[in-house]
Amino acid sequence: MAQLAMGTKLMVGAYSIAELTSIGGMELSADTVETTTLDSGGWRTFMQGLKDGGEVSVEGYFNPGDTNGQIALYNSFTSGSLLSYTILFPFGASWTFSGIVTKVSTKADLEDSVPFEATIKVSGQPSLGLTASAGLTGLSLSGTGGSLTPTFNTNTYLYAFSGLTGTSFTVTATGAGQTIAMYVDGVFVQNLTSGVASGSVSITSIGSKKVTIVANEPNKAPRVYEVTVVKTA
């Protein structure tokens, strides 16, 4: 059955790359090794040779404030570092792979938005997840003055925790039989125990932090929940 691509994300670690309009790949291929012998009946025969994960290309709009997404790709290009990526489809399937960034580009045309393009060379074997993890059954944040919107739903992945006036907050996620990892502004903080509050996260200045919760079961596509925590006073 055909599936819509709208809502697909490319994750760098636990952080989604902002403002993408296209994700190209995966492109799996394999070399061939000839095995023809005198007994092959006049036909060439082959066996599969080395496999190649190909490249993943992305296109979108340049966002210099996307420090853990677009700028992370640029930093990976300059350092040559190998990072972990996930193409996360909205219907529960995923590709997980390691890769190196081989291209980053922008350009400026009159009366057009500034585009962003990048290419990631897949290194090693990618993993295809066909079944979605169960996802969270509960998600709440605690902090003076803050409130979570919209009301939590297992299949809703974007939230705001706004109106925070205190200097810290905690996160409680519930999901039986899953690994629940918590990131703040793209940096791993801790693995959460289902139903148990996280350690206190400091937010002392007016502004926002991005909290990412990744719920995952072995050999299944992860579910990624993002909460923008906004401190107003």
Rank of each mutant, 00 (worst) to 15 (best):
F62V: 11
G166S: 10
L110A: 12
F46I: 12
G80N: 07
T131W: 12
E59M: 08
V211L: 06
T204I: 12
W43V: 13
G13P: 04
S79M: 06
M6R: 09
S40W: 10
L110S: 12
Y61M: 14
M1H: 08
F89G: 00
E226D: 12
S98M: 10
S142T: 15
S16F: 04
V12G: 01
E34Y: 12
L88T: 02
T193K: 05
T96Y: 10
T119L: 04
D112T: 11
M182E: 06
P90W: 02
L128C: 11
V101M: 03
Q125W: 05
W95V: 13
T149V: 10
F62S: 13
A173W: 00
P115E: 14
I206A: 12
K231V: 12
S142N: 15
K121N: 10
F89H: 13
Q190H: 03
S127A: 15
L88I: 02
T131P: 10
L192Y: 00
T167F: 05
G146N: 07
T131D: 14
V229H: 11
F62W: 14
T137V: 10
L148V: 06
I180D: 00
Q48T: 14
S113F: 08
G24S: 12
T45P: 05
D52K: 12
G99Q: 02
A93T: 15
A134I: 06
T165H: 06
